[in-house]
Design a protein around this nucleic acid. Structure first.
Lengths: 151, 151
DNA sequence: ATCATATAGTTGTTATAACAATTAAATGAT
DNA sequence: ATCATTTAATTGTTATAACAACTATATGAT
């Protein structure tokens, strides 16, 4: 059967999730702009701060980013003076990453904006719906982690 | 109170949605690779096919992409011979976009993969959960469209 | 009709993401 | 101990996204 044009498209979950994710990302982006930091940089900085001395591999795992992306985001943070690296002593291939004093106020501000974003979300979904959504996202994430492994 | 390092991070909805979205996107990416098309190109191509003769502005709205991004994705599709543009007759600023015959099999394949992806999703969430998720995503999308307007 | 304003599209810039390929150091097998 | 194999990190390339600035055309006010 040939393609029939003119049919209404029913958006898929993946498509809709992408659109919605970008809206949430933009929310943070706008608020973090005065601090000259992006949402992705923020997420990495938060991990660094939460456990000083992580190596990049661990940061990559915790943020679900690949290693090249993690390297480059850390480079950005380093060039802004928000993190610094220390060559590993037992394993000289790796670097331990730490946040600087300059990063502290940014981290506090970011945490505030995440709180704000949560409040904003709770204006359109209930606490329970929020939790349901998190649970479903985790389930899908886990399932597709497995499925994508075959590639 | 100063930043306390060493605390476990509770991932936010935004962060988790981003991680999960990338997994879904990768699923499609891998399957579309033989057709030399990305998931985003696919979503644009699908819109073009669903209503031949749309102008770019309309395609941008339907895919929730901004105009520059839409321009460039259409450029990619055009250079691959999957769509073509026709200068508007009443409004010479705009272009009507159409899909080519070469695009038809790709569109069919893509639709198949989206079906597959839905089946894959339904292996980890119920039909009802799928619908709940869609509804919540739409609600959040709509809410943050309003909130982000202030910027 | 003219001119200001709005609109459709494009181009430039920067950041993130995915992937491939590379470097350097560590580990394992023999 | 030596050599092959992993592993941590980096670099290169391409695509998407957000934003600013720009061009060309259309619309609206007077």
């Amino acid at each position: 059967m040939p393609t029939k044009a003119g049919q209404e498209i029913i958006p898929t979950l993946g498509f809709t999730m992408g659109v919605t994710y970008r809206k949430l990302s933009m929310y943070l982006q706008h608020r973090l702009k005065p601090f000259d930091i992006t949402p992705e940089q923020w997420s990495v900085l938060l991990e660094v701060d939460s456990a000083e001395g992580l190596i990049q591999k661990e940061i990559a795992e915790r943020t679900s980013k690949d290693h090249p992306t993690t390297t480059r985001i850390l480079d950005q943070l380093e060039s802004k003076g928000l993190v610094y690296k220390q060559k590993g002593k037992q394993d000289r291939r790796s670097y331990l990453v730490f946040s600087t004093d300059k990063a502290k106020p940014i981290i506090e501000a970011g945490k505030g904006y995440e709180q704000e974003m949560r409040s904003e979300l709770l204006e359109c979904v209930t606490e329970q719906e929020y939790e349901v959504m998190m649970e479903l996202l985790h389930r899908i994430d886990h399932h597709f982690s497995g499925v994508n492994k075959d590639f």
